[in-house]
Design a protein around this nucleic acid. Structure first.
Lengths: 252, 252
DNA sequence: CGAACGGTTGAACACCATCAACCATCGTGG
DNA sequence: CCACGATGGTTGATGGTGTTCAACCGTTCG
């Protein structure tokens, strides 16, 4: 991941004011668009964006079972995705932030396979999938980009499986914090100063633990001097220490 | 899933004898090829298969970190995929059978992101990814097929996350058995008579449990009259009972 | 202000891991 | 051919980690 700083805030401000920013001048371009396009291709790709859509905090962008028609690129805000079982228990499958893509799981069955809920007021770019398919037949870079995004999601979920299958609570939470920090840093934010957008319950569901365990584990990591916790503000004091806890996969 | 019977055995026999069966006459076609192609398109798709490759039991088809160049369609045999952490612990991320595709996780980084190991003597069709990309720019059905395969893998892993995150040992094992039975049935095999190709340890790693727990849970399900177990032979006696245990996700 | 929500902490318990012994099966080589 | 070792599988005893239930605290918002 390149270390050039990507300033997220201006775009987000533009978003809430309803200003329509073209892809070519969107500062998330490096995250959700392929690199190395000529002007003509870039112009065509801008047609990709069908519309923009606001999602209020707590509201779903889409729900499990709804017909699938588009992917969504997050312009601003924070989402969680979750699946629920018949008996009501819920599993959070991921947290997504600006520049990431929602809806990939809907392609197989033409129906969304999970709920996507905004954890704060958010805005997304609607990318009609039919249009993505057409364009990616013509623009190789876009095709490649799409393939890589999907593959990346497969690899990400694989990492979560490793976490859920073989780590203990402190390792899971450490891995979660490091992942969050890394993604925020890639977007120009501090890599050690985190503001959690989700509840302890959400984190617990994601990590396969109860909310009480999350709370206790936060306290333990804080006691050990690895982090500092004040409600949803978390400061990473000893990144190396967290990393030692996790023992990340050998070939990521 | 259509219920027409797909006879797997003849192709497998052809495979071990080294007979080259064209895609158009391969009886796995419905599983790994898009439907509704005209003759011309079908002919072009046959060029997709770069070569065929045998993998002996216990040998890797590819290893984590190796350069990625192709997807692999399983013609015969049974595979497991697994990732390993630095400290040596291993997580099985899936079991794959004939008609399924291996290697999707390699696209992002141009390196394979897991190990794929044959659990019995196997044969795969090598599909150079560059060729897939080219062809899918021309043949819409193939493009769609590729997208759906990747999306399906995302959904599958999501299901495993639900399992690992919120189910108990007997629920996990029940879900595992039902899934296996359903996939075998889709290939024309019995949906109640299973021959497990993997060890208890493999199953345990996949389900996030220890091998002893797998063994005990098998015994418990057998005591309850839900299944019958003789080593690697498992017979499902009460599918509805297993299903009741699992409480499958609401909108699969 | 009070209710609702999110978060923390304590105590008891359940489930699964761990350690250990033993058994079954299979393939190999003396 | 049988003995042998290696691998895989079962079962028991014990303990640890995380769950569950519960009380309590802090913050936010109508």
């Amino acid at each position: 991941m390149p270390h050039r700083s990507v300033h997220l805030i201006p775009a987000a401000e533009g978003a809430v004011r309803g200003i329509q920013v073209a892809c070519s001048s969107c500062n998330l371009r490096e995250l959700c668009m392929p690199a190395g396009l000529d002007d003509h291709e870039l112009a065509r790709i801008e047609q990709l964006v069908g519309s923009r859509q606001k999602v209020a905090k707590g509201k779903p962008l889409f729900r499990c079972g709804q017909p699938f028609g588009a992917l969504y690129a997050i312009r601003a805000g924070f989402f969680k995705t979750c699946v629920s079982a018949e008996d009501g228990r819920e599993q959070v499958t991921g947290f997504q932030m600006a520049g990431e893509v929602l809806g990939l799981d809907g392609i197989v069955n033409n129906r969304h396979g999970c709920d996507a809920v905004a954890l704060e007021d958010a805005q997304v770019c609607v990318l009609p999938f039919e249009r993505i398919s057409e364009l990616s037949r013509e623009i190789v870079a876009l095709q490649q980009h799409l393939h890589r995004i999907m593959s990346r999601e497969i690899v990400r979920e694989r990492g979560v499986m490793l976490l859920l299958g073989s780590m203990r609570s402190d390792e899971r939470l450490a891995a979660f914090l490091l992942n969050l920090a890394q993604r925020l840093q890639a977007r120009g934010f501090s890599g050690s100063e985190l503001l959690l957008r989700m509840t302890r319950e959400d984190i617990g569901s994601y990590l396969g633990l109860q909310l009480e365990t999350i709370s206790r584990t936060f306290s333990r990591l804080a006691e050990d001097g690895l982090i500092e916790v004040h409600q949803r503000h978390v400061r990473i004091l000893d990144e190396a220490g967290l990393r030692r806890l996790v023992n990340a996969p050998a070939c990521g």
